[in-house]
Design a protein around this nucleic acid. Structure first.
Lengths: 120, 120
DNA sequence: GTGCCCGGTTACTGCAACGGAACCGGCGCT
DNA sequence: AGCGCCGGTTCCGTTGCAGTAACCGGGCAC
């Protein structure tokens, strides 16, 4: 899954005041990016083309804090850090994919779909 | 469904640059509020306790523009306006409920769930 | 004529998310 | 000595969602 993700059409959200927070711009994409196994910071960054390192760090930290991903730092050099889904994080792929399926199915019915960028 | 909705734990989002936009704070709640039939502005406002009329108008207008709800103004007095789901809007309840089901199922596994407000 | 009801609108403000650019430390390579 | 790699961090600015408070217009009732 190094190819650009198509999940950009749909992601899940809860605001910071709600127990679940998947609503930032990148969480959904990160979930799907880690679907097939752990990945390094740089790999995720490359898959999510255009994400600023600052934002990626923020998002990954939040996801770690909320128990969706694990962060494993290897004491090597150059440094290596691996992010992987927890079971909880993996369970979120269900609703996420349901939403993505909906989006693919109804994309043509959406009034302003073509005016906006369909895929990230 | 005049009782306060519990969908506050989960809603769906896409940013304004994406074809689908369910990400604002209230769209998901409005969808579920209209699930059982059309409702008046004031009814929706009462069901979504705490929403400012300005924000509610904005959200409903956006949902209308995107083809999820219809707005029907009756030329009566006092004025009456009814909002109802379109077929497209109704189809969104699928993924939305999937997400809500996930939230209910995993609420106890969430690290910081109790610190934040579980229900709106 | 005063006030209420409904469905808004307007103006102002706050805040969180997002983004760009620059910089950093530790190590290894040349 | 200088450069590059990796995984960040810091500073600063922009954007957009949301909230508060106040107001409005038309018709009706008192």
């Amino acid at each position: 899954m190094t190819a650009p993700l198509d999940a950009g059409v749909f992601d899940l959200r809860c605001s910071h005041r709600m127990p679940i927070r998947v609503g930032d711009k990148w969480s959904g994409l990160i979930l799907r990016c880690l679907e097939d196994g752990g990945r390094r910071f740089g790999e995720v960054k490359a898959a999510l083309r255009g994400v600023a390192p600052k934002v990626l760090t923020e998002t990954l930290r939040a996801m770690e804090r909320d128990g969706w991903v694990t962060r494993t730092a290897y004491d090597e050099n150059p440094p290596r850090v691996e992010y992987a889904l927890t079971e909880l994080g993996r369970s979120l792929l269900g609703p996420l994919n349901a939403a993505c399926a909906w989006a693919r199915e109804h994309l043509d019915e959406l009034p302003h779909a073509q005016e906006r960028t369909p895929t990230a």
